[in-house]
Design a protein around this nucleic acid. Sequence first.
DNA 1: AAAAAAGTCGTGTGCGCACACGCAAATATA
DNA 2: TATATTTGCGTGTGCGCACACGACTTTTTT
Lengths: 354, 354
Amino acid sequence: MGIENGKIRIKDVAKKAGVSTGTVDRVLHNRGEVKEETRKKVIDIIREMGYTPNLIAKSLASKKLYRFAVIIPDANNYTPYWEKPLQGVLKAAEEIKDFNSIVDVHKFKGSDENSFRKVYAEVLKCNPDGVVFNPKHKKASLDFVKLMDEERIPYVYLDVDLASGNNIAFFGQNARQSGQAAARLISNIIPNGSEILIAKLAGKKLVSHHITLREKGFIDFFKNSNNCDCKFKSIDIDLSINTEPSLSLKKIFGEHHNIKAVFVPNSRVYRVAAFLKENNLQRTICLGYDLIQPNVEYLNLGVIDFLIGQKPEDQGFNSIMALFNHLVLQKKVNKLNYSQIDIIIKENIAYYNL
Amino acid sequence: MGIENGKIRIKDVAKKAGVSTGTVDRVLHNRGEVKEETRKKVIDIIREMGYTPNLIAKSLASKKLYRFAVIIPDANNYTPYWEKPLQGVLKAAEEIKDFNSIVDVHKFKGSDENSFRKVYAEVLKCNPDGVVFNPKHKKASLDFVKLMDEERIPYVYLDVDLASGNNIAFFGQNARQSGQAAARLISNIIPNGSEILIAKLAGKKLVSHHITLREKGFIDFFKNSNNCDCKFKSIDIDLSINTEPSLSLKKIFGEHHNIKAVFVPNSRVYRVAAFLKENNLQRTICLGYDLIQPNVEYLNLGVIDFLIGQKPEDQGFNSIMALFNHLVLQKKVNKLNYSQIDIIIKENIAYYNL
DNA sequence: AAAAAAGTCGTGTGCGCACACGCAAATATA
DNA sequence: TATATTTGCGTGTGCGCACACGACTTTTTT
């Protein structure tokens, strides 16, 4: 190391400037107590020698402990999905822990806005240096964001893009575009004039913005494509009713005999797959979202034909790293970060589902 | 920091073991000069307290400079592909440079075994601490590997798996499986009884093992699938003849009128796409490999229907990180690392081609 | 003019670890 | 028994940086 290796240290700058390391340090951190004249000189020499701080040493010497808070829905039987971003978050936590940075994970009940409000109040009390959160509850999230802006706490959106606020970054999928990709895959396969079922399965009647966008992209693709005149049948299925989704699906398939494909714009596609299998409808093309366990099983059985993936682990990981880069390393981070739209079939799933 | 923050330091271990930090250090580095009895005790306490070294401090204190060498084919007009792994390598280099680690990139002429031999001789002279290389030339690579084994230099295979040698890791695609994925995509679309053209375009008559495996996977899929009786026509096209590939393709399409799909098991698919476009054969399903620029263009034009990607940037990046993890962080690294088999269509390419 | 305050700047210490050095006890050699 | 040699271990220093402390100079106040 040292200057002979091309690495300029504070010491080298100080020597050349004819001052002490302390003075250079004060200049570097804008901590004042330096005569303007010497400050200028030091700055010049810093530039001239191309000094860049050694991040390793910087981190070791710094007593500042960075605390990052993560607020995401609790993974449960209905939404095992959120385990994946969590994995990524924890991996990031491991990776930055030697840089005086720790990550606290807070979970809220996905469907419950008040639960979210309660959690963010807790988080604010901890005075975090940065926050990653899932702004699925728009109103509450806007309130949260306002508070963080006041306290100048930087924050990152995960999975959903609030589209307003001073977030330093967003990580998630371009929902509309993913619907278009899904449409292309299906339109490749089914004959002209087929019917397509769009099945929106939700915990309650809550169909999220996300899902709407996916559907929109899906339908738009067919609209804009000249050689494909398929008919759509879009239905909402309330999974909190325990005869569902069987009830609704039976009815639909009974009434429409030309349904060649089912598009499920969220991760509950395995519920539809179960129905298809039980009723010997495996030849119906079935496409849904996310590589959660039951979906993967039906894909391997050949009941689900395609899954759209979005690397939720990476999203979780990158969210934390965005905060870290912004605050600790003071690197620039991209604001809009769309994940890949992964197309998963039986033959390539082994290399995604790690 | 310190123990009150849950961070166990050498000092803490030493105190609890009733020895000095020096002794703990000797135990940690297996540097001997410790009585077996105390060694045991220290080891136990390390485990008990869950000590993990602070990588930051470790790196700062270490005077050792790690040099990694990378040996890959030179990217040129025929194989722009190799720019991608290089990008990943350079990104990794940037990321580890504060950890006393530097990366030297050496290029050889892809088609020339002697060029490869010359380069590896140079590399060995530099006494690298680790090597990442592309063992496309089997014989020469085996010789190289032998020399490295003698010098106990760890090495990583990139893109091609030599299947012998003491490599610490391999990064690349499962070629056979990627052929299967390709087959599924095509078989979904084309009607039963169609003909499928398999066009192997190569610089000379050199068809690599890679390509053979992709073809094998492709054909096997159809064999094992019961409801698909397609006919295959497999041809080799020598691109060093400058009337190719037009000449061969014209002939084939003239003789076979039921070709519904073309499978090109490497990145030269854009040459076929150009032919299809010129001859108004866009309706033929066209599938090939790798997201190089001309391929991407034809995908966006709708001439190429699918591309199979393999994240070569990640492969390059991960190869270096494997060496780094192995040598510097002394973490375990997986030996066999198959990349994802990315399925790329017009609608999702924007999120892959960065 | 003396005392207080403010403005500048150098020095020293510690972050957690690696490693050189050297001391003391145990063992070997004479 | 005296003298080498080995074995086992503690101490000290430095990696590049952040920051506290104190010293010295200049300016302000009384």
